[in-house]
Amino acid sequence: MAQKYDPPKQSGLGQFIDSFFLMALVYAALLLPILLGLTGGATETVLPDGVTQIEAEDGTVTWQGLTWESLGQNPTMQAQWEKLGYDVEAAAEIITTRFDYSIAPLSLLITAIAIIGYFIFLVTMSEKEYREVIAEKFDARR
């Protein structure tokens, strides 16, 4: 016969500290990637053949050999870009920015282990607690 578990009563201060601790952890998780400078997907600039980009010391960028055709844009696309208020150079900034989908096997492995491990921990630990709950609910005499 399972013994009924009687939890301790938590003080108001304890309740406050628990809520506060949880929120502090949330902010830590949000800030950590930023502090490490590791946010967002990796992008790279991919220039089409015949186009070169020169960046001056003050950060201004000049393009050479840039045409709508060299960016792979047909007249329809060009018309829509212009309707959006973009000239060929402004559009080139967007068009030549590409995502880098190269995969680092080690970090993929670490991530996979972390996710799978997390769920295994959740399910096994929950199972242990669940048996206790069921035992008390269905066996305990009031």
């Binding site: 998780a29 990637p33 490490l36 946010t39 997907g41 670490i110 991530t111 972390a114 996710i115 997390y118």
Partner: peptide, 15 residues
């Protein structure tokens, strides 16, 4: 592929 570091940070949080 897009947000590998955030994914790890978040799993870390939930652990």
């Amino acid at each position: 592929l897009g947000y590998g570091v955030q994914l790890l940070a978040m799993i870390g949080f939930y652990i």
